[in-house]
Amino acid sequence: MKKKNILYFQSGGPTAVINASLAGLVLSALKSPSIGEIYGARYGIEGVLDGDFTNLRGLSENDLNLLTQTPGMYLGSSRKNLPEDLSSPLYEKIKEKLLSFEIDCVFVNGGNDSMLTAAKLFRSFSLHDIPISVIGIPKTIDNDLVGFDHTLGYASAALHTVSLTKSIAIDGFSYKEGKIQIVETMGRDTGWLAASTDLLEEPYHPDLILVPELPIDHKEFLNELKGIYEKKKRALVVLSEGINHNAPKEKDPFGHMNFEGAAYEWSALIRKALGLKSRVSVLSSPMRSDPVLASQVDIDEALRASEAALSFFLDGKKGVMPAISRISNNPYRVEFHPVSLDSVGGKILYMPKEYLKDHHSFSEGFRDYLRPLLRKRTLFTDGCGVFMSLKR
């Protein structure tokens, strides 16, 4: 029986564990007698269009172990949006590239928009009776994939956010009369990352946590903050980048606004309305690819999800991806089950109402949900890290 060739590519933004997903797929494929060549496309779907493939069978066991602790995206990424029109010449070009390498399955590792790309590929192949499977592998720090208990990358980003916010809180105690510290997290549409700081105990707990699911107007915010500062002579505010603000916004290829920098607007508002000094910390890129504060749970599940993705393909499934379901909290256990790409692509999972409370804290149910995810891995033993890089 002919062995099956597979192609994997990374898409969207980095996470601390997306390279662990790659390692998990390669490890699983190397163990399978049904798999032939294992290719990776450089720079996402653009690499597919260019036929820019690298054979991953040459990665050693040590290489794959290093990948699990390597930040960024080993193969590179792309945010290119494929046309809605499945008769576009782009799909014909993709088909030709894949058939020339005798690819039997394409694995797309990404989030909401990446699953739109995967779904379009699957619909195009199905429409034209092309015998190529498409399987998704989940990834997004925003934790907003519909049908998932949580997403790969979220736990590590949350652990980074909680740890750095605690350090910022401690810094704020350095003076008798402190500033208003404003911490901005990623999270264009949802507040999962900002909300993670609710795990911090007093005196490190934020005074205000602002998330898109609980809008707040400027007047309400200023009144709350003024009262807090008068009482404590300092304040700590954590906000999602997507919290309502009026900065000029640029759109990405999928039509999403770039909201980064919201904290500077709130800082200017505080200075103008209250005459108080503030300091802004935009966590930004480090929070999504910090290997030092990666969650061991996140890494383990990234490896397992890729193993599940490969098994779905070998079982004959098409147009699906492994979703995470939580079986129990104590002991913490999850399982992976297939969901369709169309049910995930382009959709957003908001924080449920039962987790929302007010602008100061969230429910105990949310804290119970988050705690098991934040088990830190031990990475450095000699003061510096060792990572993988693709020879280009």
Score class of each variant (00 low, 15 high):
Met1Cys: 03
Gly13Met: 01
Thr15Cys: 05
Leu22Arg: 04
Leu22Phe: 12
Ser28Asp: 06
Ser32Thr: 04
Ile45Gly: 00
Leu56Pro: 11
Leu56Ile: 14
Asn65Val: 08
Leu67Ala: 05
Asn81Asp: 10
Pro83Tyr: 15
Ser88Phe: 00
Lys93Cys: 02
Ile94Ser: 03
Leu99Thr: 05
Phe107Thr: 00
Gly110Phe: 04
Arg123Asn: 15
Phe125Thr: 10
Ser126Ile: 01
Pro131Val: 08
Asp142Ala: 10
Gly147Pro: 10
His150Cys: 03
Leu152Cys: 03
Ala155His: 08
Ser156Thr: 09
His160Gly: 00
Thr161Asp: 10
Ile168Tyr: 15
Lys179His: 10
Ile182Glu: 13
Val183Gln: 10
Met186Val: 03
Thr190Gln: 09
Ala194Gln: 00
Ser196Val: 01
Glu201Gln: 13
Glu202Asp: 12
Pro203Asn: 01
Pro206Gln: 06
His218Val: 10
Gly227Ile: 00
Ile228Arg: 03
Leu236Thr: 06
Glu241Lys: 07
Ala247Ile: 11
Phe254Thr: 12
Gly255Asp: 11
His256Tyr: 12
Ala262Gln: 09
Glu265Cys: 13
Leu276Thr: 06
Arg279Ala: 08
Val292Gly: 04
Leu293Glu: 01
Ile299Leu: 13
Glu301Met: 08
Leu303His: 03
Ala308Cys: 09
Lys318Val: 14
Ile324Thr: 07
Ile327Met: 06
Ser328Tyr: 08
Asn330Met: 05
Arg333Gln: 12
Glu335Gly: 00
Phe336Ala: 03
His337Cys: 05
Ser340Gln: 12
Asp342Ile: 12
Asp342Val: 09
Gly345Thr: 09
Lys353Val: 03
Glu354Gln: 07
Phe362Trp: 12
Glu364Lys: 05
Gly365Tyr: 04
Pro372Ser: 13
Pro372Trp: 14
Leu374Ser: 13
Phe387Trp: 13
Lys391Cys: 02
